[in-house]
């Protein structure tokens, strides 16, 4: 089964918190994704809606001076893992979430191998992008690699 893993970081990853963030996001990108959805932009850019008072963004265009009062931005150094190929199969070993319900465009926050991660659910054949707290990054990557390399389920599936 073909699965590739790659670990990286996102230079402009930022969490926005505060009031009237929809307005800010609108001015940055021209639209606002629905709750727990994301929109993709070029150069790994994206903007994800985590609720009326929170957005996770990776946009080179964003600058702190665009913030109004009661708006806060905090840099994020998440470890970002890209999984290409049959990522759903790999996830079935480490994540209880039923990915049958995950649709492209969804921003999913879920536990993977005991660590909280976020994911950008991609189109069918595209690469999954997931991020986690940087201090868990080495553990998560190591764990996923190990599962990928050793699991009989990834080689044979559940069917005999």
């Amino acid at each position: 089964m073909s699965i590739q893993l790659q670990s990286s970081s996102l230079e402009h990853l930022t969490v926005l918190r505060g009031k009237n963030l929809s307005g800010l996001v609108q001015s940055l990108t021209g639209s606002v994704p629905a709750l727990f959805h994301y929109q993709k932009f070029e150069n790994r850019g994206f903007i994800a809606n985590l609720g009326s008072e929170e957005f996770l963004i990776n946009l080179a265009d964003f600058h702190r001076d665009q913030l109004e009062s009661d708006q806060y931005a905090f840099q994020r150094g998440d470890v970002v893992i890209s999984i290409s190929g049959q990522w759903r199969e790999l996830m079935s070993e480490v994540c209880i979430y039923d990915f049958r319900q995950a649709c492209p465009g969804e921003f999913l926050m879920v536990l993977v191998a005991g660590v909280s991660v976020w994911m950008l659910i991609p189109e069918a054949t595209e690469t999954l992008v997931m991020g986690c707290d940087p201090t868990y990054g080495h553990y998560l990557f190591k764990t996923l690699e190990h599962q990928k390399n050793t699991s009989p389920f990834l080689n044979h599936g559940v069917q005999k």
Binding site: G114, V115, T135, Y136, Y139, H146
Partner: peptide
């Protein structure tokens, strides 16, 4: 398998 998260500081 063991899934025991461990953290490392920067």
């Amino acid at each position: 398998m063991r899934f025991r998260p461990e953290r490392q500081t920067a």
